[in-house]
Design a protein around this nucleic acid. Structure first.
Length: 243
DNA sequence: AAGACATCCAACCGCATGAAT
DNA sequence: TATTCATGCGGTTGGATGTCT
């Protein structure tokens, strides 16, 4: 028996996902769900294999994904669970809402394992700070000026991540300017994102999004809106005036 | 300033497993 | 029961970016 390849090799794209591809995948799944990953890319018009689409959705695009550094608690949980379970990343990920097995695996190999080998190694909260990566393939990122990039590291980290992630990140992100941080949660204009945001009803109802969250009539509008908010907040270090 | 090296992480690959036929 | 298919998981890699010299 010859197993069928998981995807057609010819003509399919590999490598990093572009913002446009993310948009296509997100909007397709919002409309049709993901009952069949194999047929999804064809139906959505993506030159990717189903496996690649699934991975992108699971690890970066699906609602509720957390980005950014792991907290001490999260790191401790990973260490403890790894002691018990070994490399069962998906099981460990299940204990850390919003974190993916892939991310946990990366964190383990890049930080925690080293720290366990060298107990005096600082934890992730004090590890060296580097500028977040801005994907060259992300056309939106490339339009940022240097001053915009310097204005808010955390914002640009979000900028380098997909649309859906922006929204889930907003609940925890800080905007920094000249060493001062403003926790976005302190913005009164920032509606708290809860499970209603990601419910089928909400996703299928633009009115619901507008009514409950003020995100405009669609996700694009919403992203543009919050993009402006962050840029203005970063520049002025004050609460933005939302009209 | 530039090249070499190190680090990080997104994405790929192959295999295992369970469901469907 | 055998075969095929779809999905999930863990290991690995490629390349972008940061740091060092």
């Amino acid at each position: 028996m010859v197993r069928a390849p998981c995807c057609e090799k010819l003509g399919l794209k590999k490598g990093l996902w572009t913002h446009e591809e993310d948009q296509i995948l997100i909007s397709y799944i919002q409309k049709h769900g993901h009952t069949n990953w194999r047929s999804l890319p064809k139906e959505a018009g993506l030159l990717r294999c189903g496996k690649s689409c699934r991975l992108r959705w699971i690890n970066y695009l699906r609602p509720g994904i957390k980005r950014g550094n792991f907290t001490n608690d999260e790191e401790e949980t990973i260490i403890k669970m790894h002691e018990k379970l070994g490399n069962r990343w998906s099981t460990i990920a299940a204990k850390l809402p919003g974190r993916t097995d892939n991310e946990i695996k990366n964190v383990w190999y890049t930080i925690l394992k080293k720290r366990l080998l060298k107990p005096n190694q600082p934890n992730s909260n004090t590890r060296r700070v580097s500028k977040p990566k801005i994907k060259r393939s992300d056309s939106n990122s490339s339009t940022l000026t240097q001053s915009e990039q310097d204005t808010s590291l955390n914002f640009h980290e979000m900028k380098a991540t997909p649309l859906c992630t922006y929204f889930s990140d907003f609940s925890s992100v800080t905007v920094s300017n000249e060493g001062k941080n403003m926790d976005i949660e302190s913005f009164e204009i920032m509606p708290e994102i809860d499970e209603r945001f990601w419910s089928e009803e909400a996703i299928n109802s633009e009115e619901s999004l507008q009514e409950n969250y003020g995100y405009g009539s669609n996700f694009e509008d919403g992203m543009d809106f919050w993009y402006d908010v962050f840029i203005r907040a970063g520049e002025s270090n004050e609460l933005p005036n939302i009209s």
